[in-house]
């Protein structure tokens, strides 16, 4: 492997948001925002799906796992789904997912579901700017970093236990002052 090049001065952190937009309403609205030359934060990267009903919760978790700071899902307004009721299906999944995210310690503001019709280019702008601001305030989620930390912690713990158990096969009931742990070679 080549020695890594000296990284340039890191630009100030800004959130990375992955968006899943339905083809008929929200993606079209984002196109309209473009045609209308509305200006919004460059932090959202859109993936086009045919319907918000296609958004598998795994997509959302995968995006967070891969380092997204937030996920935005855009669908047609209730009653307006191009496929009759795909957005309701998404809504139901979203409620369950929010509970799960809360258990994982991920604040609900990081995953957002919005109904944006094809005519609401302004709303695309408003939602993206608002979410970017919110996430900027929340700071990085950095799940990949956390995974690495946790992995290291567990590896550490496992190694420590191994050393401890090798040294002291039996548990003692007498209190001893904590000792400095020595890393194994």
């Amino acid at each position: 492997m080549n020695a890594p090049a000296q990284p340039p001065a890191a630009p100030p952190w800004t959130p990375r948001i992955v968006a899943f937009f339905c083809n008929w309403c929200t993606y079209t609205a984002a196109d309209l925002a473009g045609v209308s030359r509305l200006k919004y934060a460059p932090n959202v990267r859109v993936i086009r799906l045919m319907c918000s009903g296609r958004v598998d919760p795994q997509f959302i978790l995968e995006a967070l796992r891969r380092g997204a700071d937030g996920v935005l899902i855009g669908g047609c307004h209730p009653g307006d789904c191009h496929y009759v009721e795909g957005n309701y299906k998404m809504l139901r999944r979203f409620g369950l997912l929010q509970r799960m995210l809360a258990d994982l310690g991920i604040p609900p503001a990081r995953v957002r579901l919005e109904w944006i019709s094809a005519a609401e280019g302004e709303r695309v702008k408003a939602v993206i700017n608002d979410m970017t601001r919110q996430l900027q305030a929340l700071g990085p989620l950095d799940l990949p970093g956390k995974f690495a930390d946790w992995d290291a912690e567990i590896a550490d713990l496992a190694a420590t236990l191994q050393t401890e158990s090798a040294k002291e096969p039996e548990a003692t009931h007498t209190w001893e002052p904590p000792k400095v742990l020595v890393q194994p070679q």
Binding site: D56, F59, G86, R93
Partner: peptide, 28 residues
Amino acid sequence: CGTCVAACPSGSIGQHLFEDDEVFSEIE
């Protein structure tokens, strides 16, 4: 629409043009 694809608990439904691995690779 792909609603069934997203809902299948065993991931046993695919959608042409929007296969799971395609979307995952896009996310990545």
